[in-house]
Amino acid sequence: GTLAKYTAGQVYYYPDFQSSIHGEKLRHELRRDLTRETAWEAVMRVRCGKGVRFTTFHGNFMLKSTDLLALPAVDCDKAFAMQLTLEETLLTTQAVYFQVALLYTASCGERRIRVHTMALPVVTDLADIYRLADTGAIVSLFSRLAIEKTLSYKLEDARSALQLRIVKALKEYRNIYAVHHRSANRMIYPESLNFLMLYGLALCRSTALRGGYGDVPLDERCAAGHTIMAHPIKRLLKLLYPSLIRLDEYLQQASVQANDFKSIEKRLPLTRESLDSRGLYIYDDGFKFNIWFGTVISPDIAKNLLGSDFAGELSKATLKEHNNEMSRRLTRVLEKLRNSDQAYYQLCHLVRQGEQPKEGFLLLANLVEDQMGGNGGYADWMLQISRHVQH
Results as ranks from 00 to 15, higher is better:
279 G>E: 01
261 F>M: 00
3 L>F: 15
231 H>I: 15
323 N>L: 07
254 A>H: 13
313 E>W: 09
96 V>G: 04
331 T>E: 10
208 A>C: 10
237 L>R: 05
212 G>M: 01
160 S>I: 11
153 Y>W: 11
283 Y>K: 01
67 D>Q: 08
256 V>K: 05
287 F>G: 07
383 L>A: 15
187 M>G: 01
191 E>S: 14
111 R>T: 11
325 E>A: 12
268 L>K: 00
225 G>C: 08
35 T>R: 11
107 S>P: 09
263 S>M: 09
273 E>Y: 10
128 D>Y: 12
360 G>S: 15
380 D>G: 07
174 R>L: 07
151 L>A: 15
93 T>K: 15
388 H>S: 14
102 L>N: 02
194 N>P: 05
44 M>Y: 01
6 Y>M: 10
41 E>R: 14
130 Y>P: 05
218 L>V: 12
143 S>P: 03
261 F>W: 01
73 A>D: 03
155 L>C: 06
314 L>M: 08
54 F>C: 06
376 G>E: 05
130 Y>L: 04
60 N>Y: 04
130 Y>M: 00
62 M>L: 12
315 S>N: 13
90 L>V: 15
63 L>S: 08
379 A>H: 11
228 I>E: 01
300 D>F: 07
70 A>I: 09
339 N>L: 12
73 A>S: 11
239 L>H: 07
247 L>K: 00
56 T>I: 05
328 R>F: 07
266 K>I: 11
153 Y>V: 12
152 S>E: 13
264 I>H: 05
181 H>K: 10
105 T>A: 09
317 A>K: 00
339 N>S: 14
23 G>K: 02
32 R>G: 14
29 E>A: 02
53 R>E: 02
87 E>D: 15
198 L>Y: 05
25 K>Q: 13
329 R>Y: 06
208 A>G: 05
275 L>N: 04
258 A>R: 12
247 L>E: 02
152 S>F: 10
23 G>C: 06
147 I>S: 00
193 L>D: 07
19 S>G: 14
123 V>I: 10
200 G>R: 02
345 Y>C: 04
303 K>M: 12
237 L>C: 00
64 K>T: 13
20 S>P: 06
